[in-house]
């Protein structure tokens, strides 16, 4: 394994679009070549070297490349987007699209992230130590194919639109969440350890949601069916089991309608 370290040297005036900050783009490159990789600030073409001091050679492939950003990236978008392997660690905050469309590898952000974290991701792991804004693991506008696989764990809180149009994978929010969880989802698992305002599972077709805290406003389309004992993310508890969204269409399997499941800690 080889580690490339990026040390931020200046804060971009607008946002820096760091779409080149992925192990895939770095693989097989020297620090000088990495510093020459393209980026955008607004409409201006820049290079990574304009904003970072690069040290360390990359590995031969993405899987053998670790990237460490030794500093804050509050104004850097697209970190680790579309990556397929390797790791990215940011010691600080990151902006939008962290791990968007990613297929594999690991991302660890020690601070907060902005919106669209893990958008339409297909595999890999994202770990955020701080809070996330909106649209965690959601689909792109208009698309009906959201997150397909992988895991997103937010140790802090999140905003709204968590797992919209989710098809697979797991999202864990350890603190509170605002509204719209798993809207339109047709699969996947969302685990909310804190409280949530409402609109949990609206228009949901299939998939699972676990809520450890309380839901302030329950969707009218969810119906309580039974109470179950479950182990979720290492914690054993008793949950009220709801099915829904009864207002939405549902596929049939062997003549029986399949509903989405919502478990709320009793």
């Amino acid at each position: 394994m080889a580690t490339v370290t990026l040390k931020p040297t200046k804060v971009p005036e607008l946002m820096l679009e760091g779409y080149s900050i992925t192990p895939d783009a770095f693989a097989g490159k020297t620090p000088a070549q990495i510093a020459a990789l393209p980026a955008h600030e607004g409409k201006i073409h820049v290079t990574l070297g304009d904003f970072f001091e690069v040290s360390g050679n990359a590995g031969a492939t993405a899987a053998e490349t670790d990237i460490v950003i030794a500093g804050d990236c509050t104004r850097v978008k697209y970190i680790g987007s579309k990556m397929t392997a390797g790791t990215v660690k940011v010691n600080g905050n990151a902006d939008m699209y962290v791990g968007g469309w990613m297929k594999g590898g690991k991302i660890h952000i020690t601070g907060n992230v902005d919106s669209f974290c893990g958008m339409q991701m297909q595999g890999g792991e994202i770990l955020i130590d701080g809070n996330a804004q909106n649209y965690v693991g959601c689909a792109y506008r208009g698309d009906w194919r959201g997150m397909k696989g992988g895991t997103i764990r937010i140790k802090g809180s999140a905003g709204n639109d968590i797992g919209t149009f989710m098809l697979g994978g797991t999202i864990i929010i350890e603190k509170d969440t605002f509204i719209h969880v798993s809207t339109h989802a047709e699969g996947g698992t969302v685990i909310l350890k804190g409280d949530v305002e409402g609109r949990v599972g609206g228009q949901m077709v299939k998939g699972t949601i676990y809520v450890f805290g309380t839901i302030k406003f329950m969707m009218p389309g969810f119906k309580k069916v039974d109470r179950v004992e479950l182990e979720v993310d290492g914690t054993k508890a008793t949950f009220d089991h709801y099915i829904g969204d009864l207002g939405e269409r549902h596929p049939k399997s062997k003549g029986k309608e399949i509903f989405a499941d919502l478990y709320v800690k009793a």
Partner: peptide, 23 residues
């Protein structure tokens, strides 16, 4: 701020399911 719930209630009723006493 509860339009979403109301529309969901309409849809649930249209599909022949019961809804809570107040939405």
């Amino acid at each position: 701020g509860h339009d979403y719930e109301l529309f969901d209630a309409f849809r649930t009723v249209l599909r022949g399911y019961d809804i809570p006493d107040e939405v």
